[in-house]
Amino acid sequence: MRRLYLITRDLHLYIGLFISPFILVFAISVFVLLHGSVGGLGRESSAVSRTVTGVRLPAGAQALQGRARLEALRPVLDSLGVHGEIDFIRHVARDRRLVIPVTVPGRGTTVTLDYDQGVAVVTSRTQPFGEALAYLHRTPGPHNVELRGNALFMRLWRVMADATAYLLVFVTVSGVYLWTALRAERRVGIALLFAGAASFSALIYAVAR
């Protein structure tokens, strides 16, 4: 029993320290997601544009859909020096244009591609720190399922975000186990455990009933 306690205590400590930067990312970004601009965390920055001519699209790429279109356009974006997660691809058929927002945490780039003229306008904007955290918080997320995870960093981030959530559950469960060994703190702890569960359940009931 003593051995289990010591192992649990070490795992709680080391796993908690490992996930702590991720917890900070998720906790700080909550304020940006819920309140927009918070001090310097959410301010906009000015955009920088450049125009590239002679851009060639693979034949019929604009007519493709979903992942196939993304795969066809990826080499074009690479040739323009634009790398990152493609958020979505919008085909404005009337103007013969493709609009492609590409994001990495801290930088958003929009490529507007006139596929008849072979002209691409690449507009980049450096995101403030808080916006980069908020981007990581809400991705990969439930939207654009077919396209999401088209960049390597996003596939890795999905693994790390999941790992953070699973390890957080482990850290909380192991924390409860460690607390049960502190006899002097049991009464207060039980009261707080019930108070937290009751107030949170009541709040959920109030907003969702």
Partner: peptide, 21 residues
């Protein structure tokens, strides 16, 4: 930790669900 336990579990587990639509 004890007071926020249930809320932590809810947001951790729903976070996983949101990442796996």
């Amino acid at each position: 930790g004890l007071y926020l336990l249930l809320a932590c579990w809810l947001f951790a587990l729903t976070g996983i669900l949101l990442n796996h639509p």
